[in-house]
């Protein structure tokens, strides 16, 4: 009987030194960005991809990454994933894609439809992965991108496991990648038209210091009772935000990362034929990346060993040694799949 392809772990890197520890920890796919010096000279911006920081230093580093990864039987993907590019950038980006392919790169991660079309036409040997920034989250949209030349769809964060399964089942010819750990946006990446400002200028808009007041549809302040409910909901939302941003940007006592997590959903995603699970956080510390891969790899190993789903989920909840956070439900990418350990109410985090 034919074995299903192994689900892969896709991990971020920002230096060549990260390749070996991440692959040794269990990552089979690595993604990275690069800002070529001539790009900055030509366009006076470092906006080659979605992140200003967390990029490799140049093509020499990119070659080192590819060589090392291939030696270790891992693949390397290049992010060209800005939400949009100007028409003046397309040729230069297509050249970057061609150069990446010529040095052995495995695929480009792209969101802008013009760049997808340009790469498909001009560098047809370079597989295209549609970035989560493209907000492709239905079967028809996935077919649209496949027609443009995409080989893989990276689903955005806020989808359900049922939606992931439906797309993966309906389109077996496409690889499907889904988020599993770290770095949760509040808004959809493809429809958030902001930049992450430096923290002293406000940081990401979703945690910036906006002072909002509620208004009813009439334009007046809401009635007292409604306002109390809204304010209670706001408190819950603040708590959810704390989880969304890595439990206040902290790590578990045993070094594993907090933050949005889809470990409990991995058995279902594996069963649905999801090709790979994505760990976010190119800008993160190397240690955090390695611990993230270890965490996901431990769950994947148990799935591949045939452990029953409830047992895998139980293990997933126990890995960080602080199940109360899991019990909150707010740390989950896919809360409908979360394991529900019996935690005394008084032991739950405030």
């Amino acid at each position: 009987m034919k074995q299903p392809p192994r689900m892969k772990i896709t991990a971020p890197i920002s230096t060549p030194a990260e390749v070996e520890p991440l692959v040794r920890a269990g990552a089979r796919e690595l993604y990275c960005g690069v800002v070529p010096p001539d790009w900055v000279r030509r366009f006076n911006t470092s906006g080659v991809n979605r992140r200003v920081f967390g990029n490799l230093n140049g093509y020499a580093d990119l070659e080192r990454v590819i060589d090392k990864a291939h030696t270790l039987d891992a693949e390397v993907f290049l992010v060209l994933n800005a939400q949009q590019y100007g028409e003046q950038h397309l040729d230069a980006l297509t050249e970057i894609g061609a150069r990446f392919r010529s040095i052995g790169g495995n695929a480009a991660i792209v969101a802008d439809i013009s760049l997808i079309a340009s790469l498909a036409a001009n560098v047809p040997e370079l597989p295209i992965h549609v970035s989560s920034v493209a907000t492709c989250r239905n079967v028809e949209s996935a077919r649209f991108f496949a027609q443009l030349g995409a080989r893989r769809i990276i689903l955005p964060r806020d989808v359900t496991v049922a939606e992931i399964s439906a797309i993966a089942t309906e389109l077996p010819e496409l690889d499907i990648e889904a988020f599993v750990l770290n770095d949760g946006c509040v808004f959809e990446e493809g429809t958030c038209h902001t930049v992450h400002l430096p923290m002293n200028k406000g940081g990401p808009i979703c945690i910036d210091n906006y002072q909002f007041e509620y208004r009813a549809a009439s334009g007046e302040a809401p009635a007292e009772r409604a306002l109390r409910r809204l304010e209670k909901n706001d408190q819950d939302y603040k708590r959810w935000l704390w989880y969304r941003f890595g439990n206040g940007f902290s790590v578990a006592p045993n070094g594993y990362p907090w933050g949005p997590c889809g470990l409990c959903a991995m058995p279902a995603m594996h069963a649905a034929g999801v090709h790979s699970v994505k760990i976010a956080g190119r800008e993160g510390a190397s240690e955090r990346k390695v611990k993230s891969v270890e965490l996901v790899h431990e769950v994947l190993r148990r799935i591949e060993d045939g452990e029953p789903e409830p047992k895998v989920r139980e293990c997933a909840v126990g890995l960080r040694d602080a199940p109360s956070h899991c019990a909150s439900g707010y740390m989950c990418y896919y809360p409908e799949k979360r394991s529900r350990p019996e935690i005394p109410v008084h032991a739950q985090p405030a």
Binding site: V159, V186, F187, E188, T191, I205, D234, D236, G329, P335
Partner: peptide, 25 residues
């Protein structure tokens, strides 16, 4: 003009119990 839109909705979670709030679907 719109600045950003999400699938997670704070206000749309108003009537939901705590674990179900702020999730898609």
């Amino acid at each position: 003009g719109y600045i950003a839109k999400g699938r997670i909705c704070k206000l749309g979670s108003l009537a939901l119990d705590v674990p179900e709030k702020f999730s898609p679907g």
